[in-house]
Amino acid sequence: MTERPQAVFAMAAENVPLLFPPELLTRLRACVDIDPALVARDLTEPRLREALARAEILITGWGCPRLDAAALDAVPKLRAVLHAAGSVKGFTTAEVWRRGIVVSSAAAANALPVAEYTLAMILLTGKDVFAFRRLLRTRRDFPYGDVIPGIGNHGRRVGVVGASRVGRRLIELLRPYDLAVTLTDPYVDAAEAVRLGVPLLPLDELLRTSDVVTLHAPATPETRHLIGARELALMPTGAVLVNTARGTLVDHDALAEELRTGRLAAVLDVTDPEPLPADSPLFDLPNAFITPHLAGSQGNEVSRLGRTVVEEAGRLSAGDGLLYAVDPTALDRLA
């Protein structure tokens, strides 16, 4: 039997059992030699020296240490990082790539719950559910069964900003519905848009022609405040802005001003800053629906991230290529 490669967990210790419940942990330990009781938050800790000196694989997750030169010097045999979460931008450094260490991410697995959340919000806002819930609280004699004009999801226009993993997964989830979906993304050409099955529009045109604008672009210097006062003004009256990507994509001061007019509505699972200050006007505006960054993997969804890492560990142990290896040249375009 081939000797299993040595691995060490590097994350917040409380996340290990969430990501790797017993059945998954058993599968992981069949692929790699790992001690579930030894979890690193700081790779320079003396108690970790012996295990890290042997480790070929780090299994990271939320709360993992930054992999700078000092940290990597503690893991001289390291050849792979398997990340049981989404973005790797927060903890990888140029030193990781310079040393030829391969990095895998469970971002594709995490994209599904975000896309599901977004789909749910698109359909719920199409029925104006949140407004009618508020109305029913104050008007208990609301006429049940009446046909309400001006709402519904038949033919509703949905503009997707960003063909990221989440954006692409959302486009797939939207296909069975009678919705008109369009896309804007500077890195997608006409041929790729055809493969995705959606018309490709410039951002301004998408904003002007969408009943729902849903954001799935990465946070970069170029996308900071991608949606500001000018862009919000382009959206038609009654439109909804959904953000499950990064809070910095939206100018929140401009959004609050626009929402105060009652012309638009917004669903925000991410904000800037995060969390919002307690006195943010967005909390009290009736047309702002805010959730605490929960669109991504939660509860029983978290183990899906662990399963992705187990499968990657199996490929690595078998000498196969990783399915979800991160391309460092594309990091600036990833969330």
Rank of each mutant, 00 (worst) to 15 (best):
140 R>K: 14
126 G>S: 08
104 S>N: 12
201 L>N: 00
269 D>G: 13
52 L>T: 06
270 V>K: 07
125 T>I: 02
8 V>I: 14
175 R>M: 05
219 A>M: 01
53 A>G: 15
110 N>I: 05
31 C>V: 05
175 R>K: 14
131 A>L: 06
223 T>A: 11
123 L>Q: 08
138 T>N: 09
14 E>C: 02
152 G>T: 03
175 R>W: 02
165 R>P: 01
27 R>G: 00
75 V>H: 00
71 A>Y: 02
190 A>F: 01
78 L>K: 07
131 A>M: 13
169 R>C: 14
195 R>N: 04
240 V>T: 15
281 P>M: 10
180 A>F: 01
279 D>R: 08
46 P>Y: 10
117 Y>V: 07
198 V>P: 04
168 R>M: 14
290 I>Q: 10
186 P>N: 10
100 G>S: 09
241 L>M: 08
46 P>H: 11
241 L>H: 06
126 G>K: 10
179 L>M: 08
72 L>H: 02
133 R>E: 15
169 R>Y: 04
34 I>S: 10
76 P>N: 14
289 F>Q: 11
295 A>I: 12
114 V>C: 06
267 V>D: 03
298 Q>L: 10
187 Y>T: 12
291 T>F: 09
304 R>T: 13
64 C>R: 08
142 F>P: 01
151 I>D: 10
70 A>K: 13
331 L>V: 04
314 G>C: 15
200 L>A: 07
280 S>M: 07
292 P>S: 10
74 A>H: 09
27 R>K: 15
176 P>N: 08
150 G>N: 06
168 R>D: 02
82 L>S: 04
50 E>Q: 14
111 A>C: 13
88 V>N: 06
258 E>V: 00
41 R>P: 01
165 R>E: 13
7 A>F: 13
225 H>Y: 01
245 A>S: 15
253 D>T: 15
34 I>F: 11
266 A>V: 06
111 A>L: 05
174 L>F: 09
62 W>R: 13
29 R>G: 14
188 V>C: 12
207 L>V: 05
55 A>C: 13
236 P>A: 13
280 S>H: 03
200 L>K: 05
335 A>W: 07
242 V>W: 01
107 A>M: 00
207 L>E: 10
298 Q>G: 00
166 V>E: 05
211 D>S: 12
319 G>L: 12
289 F>S: 00
104 S>P: 03
303 S>F: 00
325 A>Q: 13
120 A>S: 15
127 K>D: 00
229 A>L: 12
12 A>W: 00
276 L>G: 13
144 Y>N: 05
13 A>W: 03
201 L>Q: 14
41 R>Y: 01
142 F>G: 04
129 V>N: 03
208 R>W: 03
224 R>P: 01
326 V>R: 06
296 G>Y: 05
193 A>E: 08
89 K>I: 07
226 L>Q: 07
108 A>H: 01
208 R>K: 14
48 L>F: 09
